[in-house]
């Protein structure tokens, strides 16, 4: 057994804990994350509940756990769907070249001009704020990001002699993409998936912070951050808890992505 990169182990542990907390929140939280209790408002961590309570007496740990579900759910769905569409565009551009490639890349350039905030404002006007608006806004941005990475990686594979051998075997572009290109860029795509999900979480928090994300009472890290700004000095845990949750989750996913990259680096393979 070769040793796993430290970044992979650490990132993996953080990510598993966050996903575990998100899943657990569907069945169990220490208290009701939406149940207010004015008598026990603004309690410090340890005093009431592990992480204290907020300005209307809700249990902070429960909000953070349910917020993990909201954040991870929206970010990973957006990344998977948007990334999937982008990957299809990327392999198509690499396989066909010519006008197909120019069309795809122009379309990408246009999508890239719509950062999630802008899309969310436009979509919000149509659909109103909410989980779907956030997901679409983030997902649309993932399309060009994945299309670019995929195209660059796929072009390298198309230059390999084993692809030429597949053409000698009479295989068409789609089959070559499925049998030769995708398996050989899958490692890079998984790395991107981890890192981009992290960025998706940041975007989701940003949208919620600005009031364009999921609507109350659904718990959300970004909204909690914005609502607790006024208590920064009196009850700093209300800002720290969601802030750290966001930072640690994004860090975990980035470490995971870096670790996976190290793991699949061919130079590393040869020396071990």
């Amino acid at each position: 057994m070769r040793r796993l990169p430290k970044t992979l182990v650490l990132g993996g542990i953080i990510t598993v804990i966050m996903i575990g907390a998100a899943l657990l929140s569907r069945f169990w939280t220490p208290a009701d994350p939406t149940g207010m209790n004015i008598m026990a408002r603004l309690k410090a961590p340890g005093e009431v509940g592990l992480l204290g309570t907020d300005q209307i007496g809700r249990d902070v740990l429960s909000i953070i756990m349910s917020g993990a579900w909201t954040s991870l759910g929206i970010a990973s769905t957006a990344t998977l769907v948007g990334g999937g569409i982008g990957t299809v565009f990327g392999v198509m551009a690499a396989a066909k070249g010519g006008w197909v490639e120019r069309l795809v890349m122009t379309f990408n350039g246009v999508l890239f001009a719509f950062p999630p905030i802008l899309s969310a404002i436009l979509l919000g006007a149509l659909l109103g704020p909410g989980a779907v608006t956030s997901m679409v806004a983030i997902g649309v941005f993932m399309i060009p990001v994945f299309a670019r990475v995929t195209r660059a990686a796929a072009i390298q594979i198309w230059a390999r002699d084993y692809v030429k051998a597949a053409r000698m075997a009479g295989k068409q572009d789609t089959l070559i993409t499925l049998e030769h290109v995708l398996p050989n860029i899958s490692a890079q795509l998984i790395v991107q998936l981890a890192i981009q999900t992290g960025l998706g979480i940041l975007s989701e928090a940003g949208l919620s912070f600005l009031g364009m994300g999921v609507s109350p009472p659904t718990p959300s890290w970004g909204r909690m951050l914005s609502e607790s700004q006024t208590y920064l000095s009196s009850a700093p845990h209300l800002v720290l808890a969601p802030g750290l949750a966001i930072a640690i989750t994004v860090l975990g996913l980035n470490l995971l992505g870096d670790g996976l990259r190290d793991l699949t680096d061919p130079r590393r393979r040869q020396t071990t």
């Binding site: 390999r160 002699d161 084993y162 051998a165 000698m168 049998e179 030769h180 050989n184």
Partner: peptide, 22 residues
């Protein structure tokens, strides 16, 4: 494609001509 069964090639670089995943 149909004609290709009649002509085949061995590539110069043996490290690039076999898909590492197959």
């Amino acid at each position: 494609r149909k004609a290709r069964r009649d002509f085949q090639m061995v590539f110069q670089d043996p490290y690039g001509s076999l898909n590492p995943r197959h």
